[in-house]
Design a binder for these strands. Sequence first.
RNA 1: GUGGAUGUAGCUUAGUUGGUUAAAGCGCCGGUUUGUGGCACCGGAGACCGUGGGUUCAAGUCCCAUCUUCCACCCCA
Length: 433
Amino acid sequence: MSEINRAVKGTNDILPSDSHNWQFVEGKMLEIAKLYGFNEIRVPVFEHTEVFLRSVGDTTDVVQKEMYTFDDKGGRSITLRPELTAGVIRSAIENGLVNAALPVKVCYIGGCYRYEKPQAGRLREFHQFGVECIGSAEPSADAEVIALAGQVLADIGVKKISLEINSIGCPECRKAYHAALKEYFASNKDKLCGTCLDRLERNPMRILDCKSPVCSGIAAGAPVVLDYLCDDCKAHFESVKEYLKAMGISYTVNPHIVRGLDYYTRTVFEFVSGDIGAQSTVCGGGRYDGLIAQMGGPQVPSLGFGMGIERLMLVLKSQNAELPKAQKPDLYIAPLDRSARLKAAELCAKLRAEGYKTETDLCARGLKAQMKFADKIGAKFSLVLGEDEITLKKAKIKNMLDGEITEINLDKIEEDFGEIIREQIFKNIAEVI
RNA sequence: GUGGAUGUAGCUUAGUUGGUUAAAGCGCCGGUUUGUGGCACCGGAGACCGUGGGUUCAAGUCCCAUCUUCCACCCCA
């Protein structure tokens, strides 16, 4: 296959046979966000590169090796967003949202871009739903954001997923913790793997989630962040847990979850699924009290999360979750000749204006082929349109499920067909009861 | 970026120790006396065998490279 027939590595098409699932999922996300008071914000797909260097952090892998960065024709360094928080915060500062009535609660859905080696649940273009709650330092905000994520997952139909939370403290208490960690791991220096030796200098907290059995064995005995939190951070974390309990949200504290973006402080959390392989984090987020100030705004505490929609889809698929079926046409009109096709177009227009999903022949096919087609697209009813029907202004509507035939008046097709549809609905309700 | 697997019609696959026009099922299109689908039967379209080199009289089958997808690592949603 040549390049013009092939999608770029790590990108995916969402086909018509699947897009209604995406529409359902995204619809639910926006709906529940709204329920919690988070309204949608839309920001550009690309930003000045500096936006991500400042926020995500220039020592992170995301910035160092995964960004799609290029110079535009005006000589600006531009980067396709690797995540959405940075752009949203930039916009909040630029548009004065941080000076509005706080907290400002926003949500978003959009594509993100990271140059990584693709595998299941990890694409170069992927989609995230997320929220940001700007302007509250209170534990109640942490709990509300976590609750929102949990409800989205549950309402979409995820059956099994676990919430893990942790606190990584403020910059002050992290200093003490880093020192303790370095001391601990330095005494086991000879046993650590190569990458962990490197981490020991740059970011010792990352050793905690190394998958190598040797390192994780050593990490099991390492000092725990929670023991090094300052009084304020400790109280904050305790309070978050109290709120979660009050809201009936179950969680486990996992002192080993460490988020890879530099801006996180205090609460961090993940929703993890055991059903989709190694890329198991479906949703990740936390508090970032220093980020807005760091990006040139006022000192305003905030938090949020990002949810990977592709990963969520994988979870739903592997759990055989029941998603709503695609909408089928109400009526297929099968014209027999040229003039009937013209009449069919007229009838379609009338019915569609009334909101009935109506289709007709666009391929000039014979009757039999049209009936097959009507069956394949799942039309609920069909109508054959020939000379007789047009001159008599009467036609037969056939129920494609049971073959039942009802005669209607073509001049008032909207009314007559509406009646048939209503009867059908009553019949369905009666069956359910 | 590292390591391992994969690649034949839209989909799922067959293709024997390299040998004449690369098979099948599903799907798609059409037909079975010309105005009614789902079943059955018949027919048709559709594949430069991922791509590029090489070995050979001869390669889908062997060798090399490259790309894609998948799995694990790194990292993250």
